[in-house]
């Protein structure tokens, strides 16, 4: 799977360390039912999924398809009725209820649609609090939170209350909060839903870089079509089951993620297939290569207009 990071002049910086906490999340034939008897509802049915370290998985689907239930189970917020969820050697679905808060605190980072920052705390305190919950002492928690937020471009906003922050800044604070305990997995629920297009793109690129540069797994549930651009895999959940899987590739010129099946242009070169977001990118790529390769051994295949 291609894992090239999109390049952008306006991209946000991210903390320059690798997660020491990479892990693989394995979901095996997980089912979740609510109620019983005549009122029983199956929200998720025999879903299996593996999310590798550094991978970004986008889960899409119509409302009521079971996305939220699945995300809650992945994040150890909800226990499956059947099946297992493993995080490396630990079977989360079998852990006692009282062990789950620690798992959530140290292994998962949560990003929410509405940011869900505590309104009475400053941006810095929102992040430091989660570090403190995991056992960091007050000063150390604040130092770690401040470092992370500075890396995310929030240095001037540390002591602002959430109400004084823009949507993008709030989401970056939420991302800092999600990262502060160095989790292996980031779970994001509609992370761009309340953001405008430009900020949404920034957040998407940030999530991708967090996955690729820090080797964290990122699972995103979203209706936002644009998130396909950064995902390694897109899964379609409907009636509690995965119906379709789309594999993504990265445009080698502009860095955009593109669906292989729907790429605007493809190029086969020395046995490798490249996928492009537009014919312009393909032409640019082609021009670059023309200078390097003697003779035209390129087989062009123009995609759909």
């Amino acid at each position: 799977m291609e894992s090239q990071i999109p390049r952008s002049k306006s991209q946000l910086p991210i903390p320059d360390y690798q997660s020491s906490n990479s892990a693989t999340l394995k979901v095996d034939r997980v089912t979740k039912r609510y109620g019983s008897g005549a009122t029983e509802v199956t929200a998720v049915q025999e879903v299996s999924l593996t999310v590798a370290a550094g991978e970004i998985v986008l889960i899409r689907g119509p409302s009521g398809s079971g996305k939220t239930t699945l995300l809650s189970m992945l994040g150890a917020l909800l226990k499956p009725t059947e099946g297992t969820i493993r995080l490396d050697g630990t079977t989360l679905s079998e852990l006692a209820e009282n062990r789950l808060p620690d798992i959530r605190l140290r292994q998962f980072g949560f990003i929410f649609q509405d940011f869900n920052l505590l309104s009475a705390l400053t941006a810095l305190e929102n992040v430091a609090l989660v570090a403190a919950l995991a056992g960091a002492k007050g000063k150390e928690a604040r130092k770690r939170a401040a470092g992370l937020m500075t890396d995310l471009g929030l240095k001037e906003r540390l002591n602002f209350l959430p109400e004084k922050l823009s949507g993008g800044e709030k989401q970056r604070v939420a991302i800092a909060r999600a990262l502060v305990n160095d989790p292996a997995i980031i779970l994001a629920d509609e992370p761009t839903a309340n953001l405008d297009s430009k900020i949404g793109h920034e957040i998407m690129r940030l999530l991708r870089r967090i996955a690729k540069e820090q080797n964290r797994s990122v699972v995103i549930v979203s209706h936002d079509q644009r998130i396909k651009d950064i995902a390694d895999r897109v899964l379609w959940l409907e009636d509690g089951q995965f119906k379709e899987m789309v594999t993504m590739a990265t445009d080698p010129v502009c860095g955009m993620a593109v669906e292989r099946e729907k790429a605007a242009a493809q190029l086969e070169l020395d046995g490798v297939t490249y996928y492009f977001c537009s014919r312009g990118c393909r032409a640019e790529f082609e021009a670059e290569r023309r200078g390097q390769v003697v003779g035209d051994r390129l087989t062009l295949q123009v995609g759909r207009p």
Binding site: I103, R104, F110, N116, V130
Partner: peptide, 16 residues
């Protein structure tokens, strides 16, 4: 209530 729910989701124990 919602904020306490967020804290719980993030990993805060009931004791906290």
């Amino acid at each position: 209530r919602a904020e306490y729910g967020v804290l719980k989701a993030l990993g805060a124990r009931n004791g906290h």
